[in-house]
Design a protein around this nucleic acid. Structure first.
Length: 455
RNA sequence: GUGAUUGUAGCUCAGUAGGUUAGAGCGCUGGAUUGUGGUUCCAGAGGUCGCGGGUUCGACCCCCGUCUUUCACCCCA
């Protein structure tokens, strides 16, 4: 019989039980800190109406949206003329009205507007769900990946930004990943663009500046020129791009340079307030002002965040920012929000590379019962039930297979303890407990097993 | 979307200037060990050499297409 070779779409992955234990450790850790900071969970559908998603992520983002074909005879309403034109853009709008979510922020904004009467502000929500992008996969880049978002919406205070920095610090400290948190402010970037007389070119300018680390100053300047930014404006930009020193030194110099830009000064004072706040905390990881930090998403209006692992080269593992009017497009004005998104799949890759997972995963089996037959089953099963009632992960082999096979099964699952109860043990009212790591065995009563395992 | 790159057993990889039956290690199954895994020894199963087409007497190998992998660009978690 002809068969089909099993496969999954490009850029997607299966996760084995061993990998899921590790991933759940990441999700559980992140979730724990979200909850500790007062965030509440929500979920939204995998698919959204395309009208909700389109136009929110820039031109590039629209291209990367996975679109879902309409149900039924989706071509029946399309005219011959339309088909002949072979214009994908106009045609997709006719045959597809749903798409897979591209991030969690835009669906969240939609959620807030739609449920505004049930929500009291400020609303702090967290959301851990997969998102999809029709990108070409490469290192640390997948077409399906999980984001872990925490956002505060309906409040302008900069303390929200400060708390997000703390949240980032405590999560990565807990995960044992060394990081640097980079901060910038869209208003400062606007001020820079304004001061050099290129306010309308802000996107091009920030995208080019963002590449400084990667391609160097000369190439950045070349890219700026290629975007029709005049030489004199590029020259004017040089001292700002090359600004160095401590954060306070940078801010002082910027204050001078942006003295004529109202919006620029606003951005600087926001940054100063955040930095002052951060003095109050004993953060474990570095926080720095990075003027070359741009963040592609064009709905950010204030602070922008990006987190990089210092010991692994993989791009940013967390990013976010403040958006002043994301809900406006859905009809709710003057609601500002700020949030961050942890890239779980990249964090997974980082933790794998660093191998900093805890030794014992609480989600796996702790005690395994060897099955010797019906009589022994009758003796073991009540004890097994008791263990489970006491919250101890335990299992029994489903049939009286050869002991070697059963031991091999326990070994393969890395189960630390094996309980052996055959005829002899039943008669004595005891059991043999084998420590699979040391190989040592000892006789115990059922009671002793329960107390020992509960420790 | 652009430019490269990869594909041989479940996994990691050898291999042939195009020429009869394609190999190893690990894993798997069975046995040595009828109540002991992880170590040792022995045996065994498992492959349309990514898929489709072409060149050739003959293709796993050469050519074209396609899918997939990895990487860079664009962009981004």
């Amino acid at each position: 019989m002809a068969f089909q070779k099993p496969s999954i779409p490009k850029g997607t992955r299966d996760f084995s039980p061993a990998e899921m234990l590790k991933r759940n450790y990441i999700f559980n850790t992140i979730k724990k800190h979200f909850v500790r900071f007062g965030y509440q969970p929500i979920e939204t559908p995998a698919m959204e109406n395309l009208s909700t998603l389109m136009g929110k992520y820039g031109e590039e983002g629209d291209k990367l949206l996975f679109k879902i074909l309409n149900s039924g005879d989706y071509l029946s309403k399309v005219s011959e003329e339309e088909l002949d034109k072979k214009n994908s853009q106009t045609l997709t709008s006719k045959i597809s009205e749903k798409g897979l979510r591209y991030d969690l922020t835009v669906p969240f904004a939609r959620f807030v507007v739609q449920h505004q009467n049930e929500i009291s502000f400020p609303f702090k929500r967290y959301q851990i769900q997969p998102v999809w992008r029709a990108d070409r996969p490469q290192k640390g880049r997948y077409r399906e990946f999980f984001q872990c978002d925490a956002d505060v919406i309906g409040n302008n205070a900069l303390l929200n930004e400060v708390e997000l920095v703390q949240l980032i610090d405590s999560i990565f400290t807990d995960l044992k990943v060394n990081i640097v948190t980079k901060l910038n402010n869209r208003k400062i970037l606007s001020g820079i663009a304004e001061i050099i007389g290129q306010a309308d070119k802000i996107i091009d300018i920030t995208v080019a500046m963002d590449k400084l680390d990667k391609i160097g100053l000369d190439n950045v300047n070349q890219e700026l020129l290629s975007k029709d930014i005049p030489q004199e404006a590029v020259d004017q930009l040089q001292p700002i791009i090359l600004l160095s020193g401590s954060t306070s030194e940078k801010l002082a110099a910027l204050k001078n340079a942006l003295a004529d830009s109202e919006i620029g000064l606003k951005g600087i004072s926001e940054m100063e307030e955040i930095m002052d706040y951060l003095q109050l905390f004993n953060l474990q990881n570095e926080v720095e002002l990075d003027l070359t930090l741009a963040r592609g998403l064009n709905y950010y209006t204030g602070t922008i965040f990006e987190v990089k692992a210092t010991d692994v080269q993989i791009g940013s593992i967390c990013g976010g920012g403040r958006y002043d009017d994301l809900t406006g497009i859905f009809g709710l004005k003057d609601v500002s929000g700020v949030g961050i998104s942890f890239g779980a799949d990249r964090i997974f890759d980082v933790l794998n590379e660093l191998d900093v997972y805890p030794k014992h995963q609480s989600e796996s089996t702790k005690v395994f019962f060897v099955n010797f037959g019906k009589n022994e089953e009758a003796y073991c099963l009540p004890l097994l039930a008791k263990l489970r009632q006491s919250g101890i992960n335990s299992e029994i082999y489903p049939e009286a297979a050869k002991m070697k096979k059963q031991m091999k099964y326990a070994n393969g699952k890395a189960i630390p303890f094996v309980a052996i109860i055959g005829e002899d043990e039943m008669q004595k009212g005891e059991l043999i407990l084998k420590n699979m790591e040391s190989g040592e065995q000892k006789s115990l009563t059922a009671e002793e097993l329960l107390t020992l395992m509960a420790e």
